[in-house]
Design a binder for these strands. Structure first.
Lengths: 225, 225
DNA sequence: GGGTTTGTGAACGGCAGATGAACAACTCGA
DNA sequence: TCGAGTTGTTCATCTGCCGTTCACAAACCC
């Protein structure tokens, strides 16, 4: 799923790892040898970076923050900096865009600060971004991207796709789709749905087009397979 | 003798007042009757605003935050929003530039977050120049330049452009723009937004005009691409 | 192979948005 | 106080997009 890179090796690193895992992240520890990437795994930018400031010596927290902020490829990564209360006074530099977390913290606070850090980067709440394979829907910006490349959907195409994606596996009759996507007071030909499905499929491309399954004499279904 | 305005009246208000006083502020409680200013004293912008979210009903925390962020005169005030841990999950909107503080907190953490909130304001104030390609906005002097050549924007044109530029990627409905750029108590035709968008586009010139994307039957979005 | 269901291409028509211009409110200086 | 200039809003018209529909081809089931 979404990777989280953890910098620093205080005693709280294991706790933090566990909390992040509970929140749905795959935590990866990053060695404190100067690199910004975890030793193994792909080098795709993670969904989150967590800096445990306590005991960070080489590089220092401020330096690490600065390098994270400056890294070209990682430039868009949400960053959370966690430190103990008594380390706050030491003028440790936490970059402006980064979110400050003071230990001890609860899982709920961590979650809230993750959301804030991500919002600062993406301009929207993470909850508003849906990913299915290489397909990415930003529900706040009305943008769809496939493999990072933006794809233009018209309003109705977008609404239809959004509905299907957010209601996976269930089959919807054309009538049901007309009611829930077009609106309850709508009355028009059911074939309208067909045409829209076709256009959405075309824009989705070969990789994702087949995700909209047609269930003969019933309707359509979104399948993430 | 820097003033701090405190919104909300939970039990922690007194504690917060005391802590702020210890840190050298003059705390003033603001009535929860809708105004943003304290009942007495001069109306100069304070050095700090603290929102105690717990128990805030009318206006809600999110609304209060939005109004604080939108207030013309107070726009440059550092804001801290304090709330209990169990209130975090409710999707309470804390504006992006505001600093989130989770109760219970220590005096040291409060101090650190005050510093961050102030840096956020002063920082934005400081390198107050936003650059997007050859477009340059000086948020302090209300000046816009394209390719080094100054361009005149009227007040509302400037405000609209500034709002879009400082909230990139996100789509805003005309109504949302009317609320957040024109003001909450404004009520007028939504087409007003169209016309202003058109004028801003015209002044932006061919290179930047397309950065204001229109999302059909939704609204407008700023894209730096 | 006949009937039903779905895919496909093209064309129509409505409407959202762009555009130009006029109007109203306000500022400022003579 | 008047008038000219500026600025925000609204009206009227136009244009192009896009949602819808239709006709036909293809696929599927009996």
């Amino acid at each position: 799923m979404s990777d989280a890179w953890i910098y620093g090796s205080t005693g709280s690193a294991d706790d933090t790892s566990r909390l992040l895992a509970e929140l749905g992240f795959s935590p990866h520890r990053v060695a404190a040898n100067g690199t910004l990437r975890p030793p193994a795994g792909d080098s795709r930018a993670p969904a989150l970076a967590v800096v445990l400031a306590n005991g960070l010596e080489q590089p220092s927290c401020a330096e690490l923050c600065a390098r994270l902020a400056a890294d070209e490829e990682l430039g868009e990564v949400p960053v959370i900096v966690a430190m103990a209360s008594d380390a706050l006074g030491e003028g440790i530099g936490v970059a402006e865009g980064h979110e400050l977390l003071v230990e001890p913290f609860t899982s709920v606070e961590l979650q809230a600060r993750i959301a804030r850090a991500r919002r600062a980067v993406n301009g929207v709440d993470h909850d508003d971004i849906v990913r299915v394979g290489s397909l990415e829907m930003n529900l706040a910006t009305y943008q769809v991207a496939i493999g990072g490349r933006p794809v233009d959907f018209t309003y109705m195409e977008y609404e239809l796709l959004k509905f299907l994606v957010t209601h996976p596996k269930r089959v919807f009759s054309r009538e049901a789709l007309l009611n829930r996507v077009w609106g309850y007071d709508y009355y028009g030909g059911a074939r309208t749905v067909d045409v829209h499905v076709r256009r959405v499929r075309a824009k989705l491309g070969s990789e994702h087009a087949s995700r909209i399954k047609t269930v003969r004499s019933v309707g359509y279904r979104w399948e993430e397979k």
